[in-house]
């Protein structure tokens, strides 16, 4: 049996305890879903976009403490950003904003970046139509 969780920064624990922007957006402008149950992480990210600016972001996540904290952080980071700016948010930036992640948990920040990219791509493909 595995022992206790990896040591997390205070910031990670703070976002884990009080995650921001939990939930779904009805009729969102973009949705991203990444991960799978086999790996133990699934993230869903919803965005609302107005005049090219992300006005709202929400998430639902099945996963560990780091997965929940990175989901929370990425939804905070994208709010108020343009699509171009949001596309530049990297997994490292999310991890740094959380005061770092244990190396075995870096994949959670990758998942957060992918969820965001996937939501942005969904938005872009919809707006082309």
């Amino acid at each position: 049996m595995r022992d206790g969780p990896a040591r997390y920064s205070e910031k990670v624990m703070e976002h884990f305890k009080n995650p921001r922007n939990v939930g779904e957006i009805e009729n969102p402008d973009g949705v991203g879903q990444v991960g799978n149950p086999v790996c133990g992480d699934i993230m869903e990210l919803y965005i609302r976009v107005k005049d090219g600016i992300i006005t709202e972001a929400k998430f639902k996540t099945f996963g560990c403490g780091a997965a929940i904290a990175t989901s929370s952080m990425v939804t905070e980071m994208v709010k108020g950003k343009s699509i171009e700016e949001a596309l530049k948010i990297s997994n490292r930036a999310v991890a740094e904003a959380l005061g770092g992640l244990p190396s075995v948990k870096m994949h959670c920040s990758v998942l957060a970046e992918e969820a965001l990219k996937s939501a942005l791509e969904d938005y872009l493909s919809k707006s082309k139509r």
Binding site: M1, R2, D3, G4, P5, A6, C39, G40, D41, G63, C64, G65, A66, A67, V104
Partner: peptide
């Protein structure tokens, strides 16, 4: 204090 068989704790 408890434990888990989840991959996320290893």
């Amino acid at each position: 204090c408890a434990s888990t068989g989840s991959a996320c704790s290893s």
